[in-house]
Design a protein around this nucleic acid. Structure first.
Length: 481
RNA sequence: GGCACCGUCGCCAAGUGGUAAGGCCCGGGUCUGCAAAAUCCGUAUUCGGCGGUUCGAAUCCGCCCGGUGCCUCCA
């Protein structure tokens, strides 16, 4: 019954036991907003969305914090290229990101802090690190973290300082005592946004913002910190070092975030999708052609810790699968209408148990597959439905929605969703819906005249365009493959 | 080079000691004017390879082969 998660810090599955009973403080590393978000980001935040939904469904009060990194080298670089103010550019892409999150159906976090709004907290944190001698200011405007001061350094990423030593490097102009030390504060350079500090004008280093924002919004220690697995080192490793040095016991990683979750990458042709490789699809572009729930279903078909190979064909398959789920729901709704729903079916409990086990969404989809098949069989069975059957179908529809809701799926009215799905597919195939409707009318007349040759010719012609006709008691409906 | 991860049916993908979920595809049946949809039946004695531990391993250990990631910005 207890919820278990794979904790990167522990290196294994552990029970999630809230620090304060019934409450979970959860921090998800947000995006660096210098461009449109891509499918990799979509997966990341859909995963965290499911985590939050399920924890809440289990009765926990979750405070979900998801930051924006809006002060950063890449943002400055991009802004300078475009002759735009870095903070304004970041704000614009933050808005785009939020629009994408809404479009994906992700719950909004309780707090969405930005680096640019937490400079005083960051400065205070760095001051404390200097006081406690975890950091030093060599006088060049920079402040560095002294990695050797923190005995637990590298535990999260399972690295020791000696292994890291080999690959370490120091950029010209830096004044590190140890090559592995990293910047907490960077002295201002021309053309960069800068804030006042005890060390002169400058801006925060990459990792310190998350320390400051978690402490501001969740305090330390807090329960759960999440991010992509690419953040384990150096970002989260350094975040632990800073936070434990400033507000923890100075020794143990647990005195910052208790548990850490990391998800796998989205890949294209088995290579990591990333801005730097240029092999990415933006969320905006994908949702122009595909259904958001279809994308969720597709993404959640793989466990969050595994890498995920993205492909258009597989996404389309997931959308057809989503259409099947909605078609089934529509039938069950119709037949079960007015019936008093039966008690909760066992599958709902099984699905929740699967999520308890490190958020096993593929297993949930497997469980749903079985009950949808059963429901369909019941809907299509010949003869009048008994009150018990109708009660079962009503319960199925209710419970299926509840389970799917944990994944952010099946949230729409079936008819509306099916229309949206068909429109998207028609758009992709270049199918004209009005023309299809006209052909269906023609074919209906042909069938009435028993002119099956003509009727079949029309159907075959439509099929060649990807339009599938389905003759039923209420007439002919169609969909696009 | 260091540190991790991954390799399960044609494709996607669960399963981490007790004898291989599920989806797509495919073959056959029911339904249908014929189809489609839906449904039923069938489809991996086997989990990259070779050894080992064990009463028992896809699951643990070792070696090998293949792939990826992190070590520099990244969800």
């Amino acid at each position: 019954m207890a919820i278990h998660i794979h904790d990167t810090l522990a290196g294994k599955k552990v029970a999630l036991e809230p620090i304060a009973p019934g409450r979970i403080g959860f921090y998800a590393c947000g995006p660096t907003v210098y461009d449109m978000s891509h499918v990799g980001h979509a997966r990341s935040y859909i995963v965290w969305d499911v985590v939050v939904r399920h924890l809440r469904a289990r009765g926990l009060t979750v405070k979900y914090v998801r930051n924006f990194t809006d002060v950063d080298d890449k943002i400055i670089k991009r802004a300078n290229e475009r002759g735009e103010d870095p903070v304004a550019l970041a704000a614009r892409f933050a808005d785009e990101y939020l629009a994408d999150m809404d479009a994906l159906g992700n719950l909004r976090p309780e707090a969405a802090p930005r680096v640019s709004e937490h400079i005083p907290q960051i400065v205070t944190l760095i001051e404390r690190l200097v006081e406690r001698e975890f950091a030093y200011a060599p006088g060049n405007g920079d402040v560095y973290y002294a990695v050797r001061r923190f005995p637990d350094y590298g535990r999260l990423s399972r690295r020791n300082l000696d292994d890291l030593q080999a690959g370490a490097r120091v950029d010209p102009g830096e004044a590190k005592r140890d090559p592995l030390d990293f910047a907490l504060w960077k002295g201002a350079k021309p053309g960069e946004p800068a804030w006042d500090s005890p060390w002169g004008k400058g801006r925060p280093g990459w990792h310190i913002e998350c320390s400051a924002m978690t402490l501001e919004h969740l305090g330390a220690p807090f329960d759960l910190h999440g991010g992509g697995k690419d953040l384990v080192f150096p970002h989260h490793t350094n975040e632990i070092a800073q936070s434990v040095g400033a507000v923890g016991d100075g020794v143990h990683a647990e005195t910052f975030a208790r548990h850490w979750m990391h998800h796998g990458f989205v890949e294209i042709d088995d290579e990591k999708m990333s801005k730097s490789l240029g092999n990415f699809f933006t969320i905006r572009d994908v949702l122009a052609r595909h259904d958001a729930e279809g994308l969720r279903l597709f993404l959640l078909g793989t466990h969050y810790r595994n890498d995920f190979n993205f492909s258009d064909a597989l996404l389309a398959e997931a959308e057809r699968r989503l259409a099947y789920l909605y078609e089934t729901l529509e039938k069950a709704d119709r037949i079960g209408a007015g019936a008093e729903p039966a008690a909760e079916a066992p599958f709902a409990g099984e699905a929740r148990a699967a999520l308890d086990d490190d958020f096993n969404t593929p297993r949930v989809l497997g469980i749903l597959a079985d009950v949808f098949t059963e429901a369909n069989a019941l809907c299509d069975a010949k003869g009048k439905k008994s009150p018990a059957d109708r009660a079962r179908l009503a319960a199925f529809a209710r419970d299926a929605r509840a389970v799917a809701g944990l994944l952010g799926l099946l949230s729409r009215a079936p008819a509306e969703a099916l229309r949206a799905l068909r429109d998207r597919a028609a758009l992709r195939r270049g199918v004209d819906g009005a023309e299809v409707e006209r052909r269906i009318v023609e074919r209906a007349q042909a069938r009435k005249d028993k002119d099956f040759a003509r009727s079949d010719a029309i159907r075959d012609a439509l099929l060649a365009q990807g339009v599938v006709l389905m003759d039923g008691p209420q007439g002919t409906s169609w969909k696009v493959e």
